[in-house]
Design a protein around this nucleic acid. Structure first.
Lengths: 350, 350
DNA sequence: CTGTTAGCGCTTTCAG
DNA sequence: CTGAAAGCGCTAACAG
């Protein structure tokens, strides 16, 4: 039997379809006796309700759409784990789609998810996503949306993420405290809301120390077509070392940039932190066993995923209809390790 | 407008629902003129066909179920990326579920996916999955299934994975060639088909060199309740070092065991490879920048995902009805780095 | 307590 | 070429 239906049960038991339906849903209007018969039959014959039919009927699919830049990313997959945990618990399953950092792709994902009838959407916008009109439009249709990870002040919405500005500020201050003075930054596209905040935190920390090179040492790393991100990172670092005054420290703004920079610096034969110190956003559990142990800004990925999913499920179930959008800011943690330990160049006074 | 339907279009254009439906599907029985009107209207009003309805009607959901042990695993997420690429291309979306290495959980995932109406299933079985009756039963109902990554000779099915026996044999031989003689192995549960093969490869390599300690140096790492995998790894390594003749090399049978072992050995203050050499299955791109650079057996994760997805889509579309199940074995690559470089203990002849 | 009926949005005969 | 009608499997309002 390919797929048993209510009709099959009804026929076998000499009942009507609706009676069977109600019995299975434990309706008060069905006799205990009938319920038992129906349930017993359903069990022994491994009846499985057809969710497509149920979905169509009820107008809800029992699934949630998740859009991320890429699934093949340790930070992202950790957040997905958090999301999945909460959703599975609540009986939703998740449909994951990848934007691959493309806005066009992101829109296409959203369209598909909408068509598929997901009841809500969790999204970490692509790097190309500057405006949020498409999300606004989607929300207009009644689709609950929660932004996670890559949050933005420019989009009024429920959001869960970290304080990017503050985290970057702290990391830069840490480098400064360890006597580094020419701190370069590798960032992804500068227009991206969260990347912007990370730059701003970095710049403000420099300003506070009266360092005046401003944006000169920031390198946006956005691969051209036919180029890998690693190529871009290599070129950026190369260009920094070719400066008249090369940097003595490097601050990397994303998980991928951090580990790629480490690889590239190794390739190029630079010693860390002697030649250049390094600190970056990163969630790898391997930070401790890297060469050298990598100082990182750790983001609570699992927690971000969990909270975002909980918020969304709240919205779907109609709670949190408070009209008020809520932005949850989780703290990021500075994990200081060897790659940013105090430089040996002693500051000569006078 | 929450969701526009064919009826809305029909009403707006003074046509019937079926005409609109046919027009949109470019049926030959509809005039060019009508088609154009309908299509134009649909476009400008952003009509999206309701996939739940379509699914119900056609009995197919346009989605594929994927069951993995955990999504938060760099090796797994890479395979998922491969799967997603192929599926997205073919117009399927994927519903990912996690077994968390539990058979009960795995069965539950399968049930849910079946109920959801996925058209096929890609599964990397849990560590507890010794028998395959549940998969057999599911396939009996007509569900196409492809096993990937954790393949098994005990289950006649389409499968995509690597030659576990040979990879383990090679890795062990490599250690032997570098003069290591007491090689320990960390594995996960010993009953798991692929883990078994890895043990077998290891044992046969030892046997070939007439090393007689056999299984004594194998440690299955399976966390007890309330214990993390890392705790288990720590305890296992501890026990190895407490032996009268402790090992001079360690071979780890999975991605996680490899990186955890590295961490634990660091924690315990052992030098690698001076105190103990290390080689393991691992797909981390960070292998080169670890301390020391880690020798690994690299599995073509993306490719495994891709091929498995292609195979499944082939099955779904009715191709490959050859009755013959096909097992695709991809080569794993030995990436030799410092963690297994030749030991200093010179073998004295005579 | 149980059954009949209508309909979710779409596709697909089968008549016009 | 177009439309009416049936039905996918399920739920729910409404009769009996």
């Amino acid at each position: 039997m390919p797929q048993m239906t209510l009709r099959d049960i009804a026929y076998a038991l000499g009942l009507s379809v609706s009676t069977v339906s109600k019995a299975l849903r434990d309706s008060y209007e069905i006799s205990k006796d009938t319920k038992e018969r129906v349930i017993a039959y359903a069990r022994t014959n491994h009846y499985l309700p057809n969710r497509m039919a149920k979905s169509l009927k009820e107008g809800k699919s029992g699934s949630i759409g998740v859009v991320v830049c890429s699934i093949d990313n340790s930070f992202v997959s950790r957040m997905l784990d958090g999301i999945d945990g909460v959703c599975a618990q609540a009986g939703y399953d998740i449909v994951i789609m990848q934007s691959k950092e493309s806005l066009v792709q992101e829109k296409s994902c959203l369209k598909q998810l909408e068509a598929r009838g997901v009841e809500g959407i969790l999204i970490s916008p692509s790097a190309e996503t500057i405006g949020f009109e498409h999300l606004l439009a989607l929300r207009e249709t009644g689709m609950p949306i929660v932004l996670f990870d890559r949050i933005s002040e420019r989009f009024e919405s429920d959001q869960v993420g970290i304080d990017n500005y503050h985290a970057a500020f702290q990391a830069t201050e840490h480098l400064l405290a360890n006597r580094y003075r020419r701190i370069a930054m590798l960032n992804i596209g500068l227009d991206i809301p969260f990347a912007r905040l990370r730059s701003a935190g970095y710049l403000d920390a420099l300003k506070k120390k009266h360092l005046t090179y401003g944006k000169q040492l920031i390198r946006p790393c956005w691969p051209d077509t036919g180029e890998t991100l690693k190529d871009r990172v290599r070129a950026s670092i190369q260009s920094l070392f070719e400066l008249a005054e090369p940097p003595d420290a490097l601050f990397t703004a994303t998980d991928q940039l951090s580990t790629l920079s480490l690889s590239v610096l190794h390739e190029m034969g630079h010693r860390i932190p002697e030649d250049i110190a390094l600190i970056g956003f990163s969630n790898t559990e391997l930070a401790d066993v890297l060469t050298p142990p990598l100082s990182t800004i750790y983001q609570p990925a699992l927690e971000i995923g969990r909270l975002a999913a909980e918020k969304l499920i709240g919205l779907i179930s109609g709670r949190g209809l408070s009209e008020e959008y809520e932005t949850v800011i989780l703290p990021a943690q500075l994990h200081i390790r060897d790659s940013s330990r105090p430089g040996v160049k002693v500051q000569v006074n006078g």
